[in-house]
Design a protein around this nucleic acid. Structure first.
Lengths: 199, 199
DNA sequence: TTTATAATTTGAACAGTGTTCATTATATTT
DNA sequence: AAATATAATGAACACTGTTCAAATTATAAA
C-alpha cells in the first residue's frame, strides 16, 4: 500500500508550493496558516495533519529556493573567466538574487527557526550556502597557488559575514540608498577582500 | 499652561520605559500593545492617545539603547591604547552588547521600520551608529598617518558590513556555534580588516 | 460650591492571527 | 451493504492590533 505514501507526499507538495508562491510574491508577512491552506485548496486545519507548524512548512521551502538561487548564480557567472573574476561574478549574482526576492533573504537569515525542530540542519544548510556556491572556485585558486588554503579560509569567512551584513543593511535599512550605490558598495567590498591574490 | 506638555511627556515616558523593559527582558516577540500598557499602568487604548503605533513606540527606544551601548563601549575600551588596539576594543565591546541583548539587535537591524514614519532618520541613525563609535579613533589613525583617509573609509564600510553579518549569523543561526568560537571569528575578522596599518 | 464644558481614559467590539479537537465526510475492509 | 479506519473540516479559544463611543476626570464658569 504505497499509494498512501505517494498521495500524502503529493498533498504535502501542494502546501509547499502554495507557501513558495506566497513567499515570492507577497513575502513572509503574508504567510499564514489560513492563507497557505486556501491557496493549496484545503482547510487550514488540514495543514496540521501534514505539518507541525506553518514555520515548519516555510523552512521546507529553503532547499527549493537554494536550488533556484544556485541556478541563477551558475547562469550569471557562466561567462566569467575562472579565478577571481568568476568568484566575483558568483557573489554578485548571489546578492542579485536576494535583492530580487527580499522575502527569501528574510526567510534565510532573519526568520527564527522553530525551536527543537531541525535547527542545526537548517541553520547550517543556510549559513553554508554562499560558501558552497564558491567552493569550486576557491579550490581552483588554491590549486593554482593564487592563494593559500589558510588565507582562503579567512577570506571566505569575511565574505560570508560582509555580504550577509550588506544585504541586511540594504534590504532592511536602505543603506546604501539605491541599487547603484549598493552595487558599488558590494564591488568595493568584494574587491577589498579578494585583493592580494595573484590574479 | 505648560503643565500639560510636561504631564504628557511624563506619560509618554512611562510607555517608553515599559517598552524598554520588555525589549531587554523578553524581547521583541513579547512587545504588544496590551503588554506595554499594563506595565505602564494604563489601558491599551490609552497608548493610542500618545503614540500612533506600538512600532513607533519601539523605535523611540533606539536612541536610549544607543546611549546605553555607547556607555558600555566607552567603559570596556577605556584601558586600551589609542589606535588599532582601541579600535578593536571598541568593536568587540559593540559586539558584546548585542550578544548580551539579542532583542536590541533584532530591533536595530531586523525589525521593519513603520513605513513613511521617520524611516530615513531612524535608519541612518542605526546604520551610522557603529561608525560613530569609532569615529574619534579613525580620525586619530588618519592624523597619525597610520592609514590614509581613503583606505580608512573602505575599512570602516567593511567592518560595518562584516560585524552586522557576524551578529546576524551568530544570533539568528548559531554560527559560529558557541560564544568562544564567535569571539574567535570576530577577532580574526577584525584583525584581517585592520591589518596593513602601521600599528 | 455647584454647574457646565472640555479633555482624557477606557472597555466593548471587530477583524485578524495560531492552534486544538470533536464532528463530519470519505475511503477501505470485511 | 455494513462496519471500520482514515482524512478533512469548522467551531471554539486565546491571542494579536485598532477604532470609537461611552464613562470618567479635570478645568472653567456661574
Amino acid at each position: 500500500m504505497k499509494n498512501k505514501a505517494l498521495q500524502e507526499q503529493r498533498i504535502r507538495g501542494y502546501f509547499i508550493e502554495a507557501t513558495k508562491e506566497i513567499l515570492k510574491s507577497e513575502g513572509l508577512k503574508s504567510v499564514s496558516v489560513r492563507n497557505i491552506a486556501e491557496k493549496a485548496g484545503y482547510s487550514f486545519a488540514t495543514l496540521y495533519n501534514y505539518f507541525k507548524d506553518a514555520k515548519d512548512l516555510v523552512f521546507l521551502c529553503v532547499q527549493d529556493f537554494q536550488e533556484e538561487c544556485s541556478a541563477h548564480v551558475v547562469t550569471r557567472s557562466a561567462k566569467a573567466a575562472r579565478g577571481g573574476k568568476k568568484l566575483r561574478a558568483i557573489l554578485l549574482a548571489y546578492l542579485e538574487y536576494f535583492v530580487q526576492y527580499p522575502g527569501i533573504f528574510e526567510l534565510f537569515f532573519m526568520e527564527k527557526l522553530s525551536e527543537l525542530n531541525k535547527q542545526p540542519e537548517t541553520a547550517s544548510m543556510i549559513t553554508g550556502f554562499p560558501d558552497r556556491l564558491c567552493e569550486e572556485e576557491w579550490k581552483y585558486l588554491i590549486a593554482n597557488k593564487t592563494v593559500s588554503a589558510a588565507a582562503a579560509a579567512n577570506k571566505r569567512a569575511a565574505l560570508l559575514y560582509g555580504l550577509s551584513g550588506l544585504l541586511l543593511l540594504y534590504i532592511n535599512r536602505q543603506m546604501p540608498a539605491g541599487y547603484p550605490a549598493f552595487l558599488k558598495a558590494a564591488n568595493t567590498f568584494i574587491d577589498s577582500q579578494l585583493k592580494e591574490m595573484n590574479t
